[in-house]
């Protein structure tokens, strides 16, 4: 669906520290090889809740792993940003909702701005408030995010008019 959740800079599924979500009766953990320890730490906190773990290698295995899970399962993802996006998207495609997902990304997050002049998204520094788009337009980075346009709104402005270069 066009309005399905996407993993973006301020996704409600993002967390600094993985911790078991109450209510669920099973856990499914998908992690990068490098972050296996994080998965093990989470597992220790799950106590009696049964869990499955998959080390991320390729998208096909992720899909197979996800569709085999039953309702009542919560998915925990710990991966670098790009892998997390792949895993998250696959989960959502298979009907997993944001309530059933918790994501910890390691390293830099990615943020995109959508230029309202040329209608293309581009990656920006996560702290940037003003940027220049490849098309030349100067953009104020707004607070609105579009799942369809895959970026934060970039309001065009004329630098001289605002006294900024």
């Amino acid at each position: 669906m066009y309005n399905s959740p996407v993993l973006f800079f301020e996704s409600v599924t993002l967390t600094e520290k993985l911790s078991p979500k109450t209510h669920f009766v099973k856990a499914a953990i998908i992690c990068d090889e490098a972050y296996k320890e994080e998965a093990q730490q989470l597992q220790a906190q799950l106590y009696d809740t049964p869990s499955d773990t998959l080390i991320f290698e390729n998208p096909a295995d992720v899909r197979k792993f996800i569709v085999e899970q039953k309702m009542g399962t919560c998915f925990y993802i710990v991966a670098n940003w790009d892998d997390a996006v792949t895993i998250f998207s696959t989960a959502v495609e298979e009907g997993v909702s944001e309530e059933e997902l918790q994501v910890k990304t390691i390293g830099e997050k990615r943020k995109y701005v959508y230029c309202m002049k040329c209608f293309t998204p581009s990656e920006i520094d996560t702290q940037a408030k003003q940027v220049q788009c490849g098309c030349g337009a100067h953009l104020n980075v707004g607070p609105f995010y579009s799942k369809v346009r895959k970026g934060y709104i970039g309001y065009p402005f004329v630098p001289e008019a605002e006294g900024v270069m």
Binding site: Y2, N3, M116, F144, Y145, S146, K147, V148, I153
Partner: peptide
């Protein structure tokens, strides 16, 4: 969710930008 829009009198609105957004997303986060 905005699934079709024909907008010729915009007041801080854009059919292009707001397409697919929920009522809350269009009005939030303010």
């Amino acid at each position: 969710y905005l699934e079709i829009g024909q907008v010729s009198y915009a007041a801080l609105f854009s059919a292009h930008w707001n397409t697919g957004m929920s009522f809350d997303e269009i009005h939030g986060p303010v």
